[in-house]
Amino acid sequence: MAKKSRELPEISMDMTPMIDVVFNLLIFFMLVNQMAQVERAVLALPKADQAKEEQQIGEISQLIINVHKTGDLEIAGNKVTWNEFTKILEEETREKDKEGNSQRAILIRGDCEAEFRVIKEVMFECAKNKIFKVSFSAELDK
């Protein structure tokens, strides 16, 4: 009795879901990569075990000032000169409360090797503009 040769059905894999997932991941990484770099510069932050996570403190509208090891200032992804920085602070602090103080909060992100001289100048400028809420960024050391 002669064996009948059976034709196997052609197996094909639907690639569409995989391509969808890959594209979604790609878009996610592209967006996250850009967003993370805008406000917070890549700095070697000093370590502190008592630093509080930002979620614990709550949403505070704050101006982030990055101070590089070299003493350069960076705000919102742009390196700024001292004159530009003072102008930005003046614009940010136009709104004052009844006592004439600004309710704007400042977050100073300084590189661990940055000299205190620059941080001090930043604090001077904040105080001149009646900004008294100043926080420092530190890497959680737990």
Binding site: L45, K52, S135
Partner: peptide, 17 residues
Amino acid sequence: TLNFKSMEGLLISNLPK
């Protein structure tokens, strides 16, 4: 190349009024 956000915290301070 993604830089994962480091565990960053705050140390709150106040400037003198």
